[in-house]
Design a binder for these strands. Sequence first.
RNA 1: GGGCGGGUGGCCUAGUCUGGAUAUGGCAGCAGCCUCCUAAGCUGCAGGUCGGGGGUUCGAAUCCCUCCCCGCUCGCCA
Length: 570
Amino acid sequence: MDALEIFEGHIKERLTSELASLGFEGDFGLERPDHEMADFALPCFQFAKRLRRSPQSIAEDLAARVSVDGHITKVWNDRGYLNFRVNEGLLGTMVVRDALERREDFGRGEPLDGRVLLEHTSVNPTGPIHVGRARNPLIGDTLARCLRMCGHEVTTEYYVNDVGKQVVLLTWGLEHLDEKDVAQADREKNDHRLVGYYQAANRLMESSPGVEKEIAQMTQRFEAGDPEVIAQVRRTVDLMLEGIKESLGAVNVFLDRYAYESQFILDGSAKEVVERLKRTPYCTLEDGAYFLNLEEFGVHGRDTRFFFTRKDGTTLYTTRDLAYHIEKFRRADRLMNILGEDQKLGQKQLTSALRILGFERAPECIFYSFVSLPEGRMSTRQGRVVYLDDLVDEAMERAYKEVCDRRPELDEGKKRGIARDIGVGAVRYNIIRVQAEKQLVFKWEEALNFEGNSAPFVQYAHARCCSILRKATDYNKGADLSVLTDPYERKLVWMLAQFPEVVRQAGEKRRINMLPTYGHELASVLNQFYGAVPVLRSEHQDARLCLVEATRWTLHNTLVTMGIAAPEEM
RNA sequence: GGGCGGGUGGCCUAGUCUGGAUAUGGCAGCAGCCUCCUAAGCUGCAGGUCGGGGGUUCGAAUCCCUCCCCGCUCGCCA
């Protein structure tokens, strides 16, 4: 239990007994108002009806009954609210000690039961990742980090779409086209280099019936499970994936496992799904193709028919995804998917089919809205696209210039390292800070913002703490912390105390945008403290150094759970 | 047309699940602050019909109804 939980539990306990003596039994809400106002507050409106008294008089009565004790230093009523101030010396001591002892584990929850399998990214391996799709790995990776911080055991997985006309087309192109037949790529990376082959093959297929036929035949052999063709396609997909992995690594995203869609054709499990679905009463055959009627699963209108085979009997994307999910059920207790909003219907069909097959479980999905450009939706075809690689390069370049301006004395390697931490951090932060469901318009000046609500702001506060700590060299970590009574100090303590709860809630509610919100607020409070309260050579130097170090770890841990580096200087 | 999701100062955004005291911050704008631990910072000013309208409630950005706008989706594609 973290410090704040102890205080909250204590107050609730005191209130339960006092409310009982007033004649109220049951649950009640305790709030965390604006810190200027109070630490905890009990709105007494909720009791007025049951007790047939005015909220004001209830609050007044309770204020007289609830006495001050070791945890509570002040109780008062204010317009129907019963307000509390807690013993900040005690809270501060508990929180700061906890942070100093646990350091990078401060805020980490106790190990939780149940293995989590989190699928994210899973972008089609037909070209480089653009910022429209980059939301997926960044949300997924951050959620994975956050859940791990909460105490969950998490495995992350990329579902590689190595089936279908697109990848076959790419494979054909790589086989038959020469380097001089395709457009010159701006980068040597595989994903950028190969996309030209895909585009050229696509054009050829559209103009030449012979090519179209070749590709159709290749696709048929693939669908039929021809191991040779499947292996061939997988080789090109792996080549593309190499580039994609590099892009992901650049923004600090590393997945534990890659699952190939073709696997479910090869091992027959997709076919098995088909056979099982055929035997259910929801299944109908039409023109050689099978579909499920999903009407009673809340899918209405034209969407009720979910086809799971073609007329030639081959499987479809969602059918193979079904086989994948059934296989995932065996490996984990809880499934989570990060998906684009265009996948909603597909997921609905998938979960309905799983129910029909008798599975009680379903994957928990987070759908994100697409990132568009001011000119409209991103489109590789129309050249209206910003690649993640370009965004990251630009961000690092910009950061490098800033570092050179501010810290000319640093050596080149250090400058580059800091620029990388800042640039990558800024990119991650800017995507993560917005709720997944909100549609986002990408603007360079916003993506490259290094001030205000941004990663560098939080990183800077962390570097400031480190700078003070570095200059202090040694200090008494056992200093008496009850001297931290200045308003700036108390505000900081209060912020630190929230951290474990923020992590817990961000994980439980799957609302990772709580992390940047908290990080910014904590950094802001540290900056205010920094400007107003001297630490080194001050009266309470050691106590303040303890506070600064506790803040340093909290900022560090907030950044790290967001997958952002916490540089010690910048 | 049906389904799902969004709509909060000029721009971006928190809060919405679980209704509470003056709606959170940032960017841009204006005015200040570096003989003192890094000014990627701090302080102040200005800026709001929480899309519109009804309802429920002692109390609504939050819950219910309705309408409007934007996005996604409605393939024997993936």
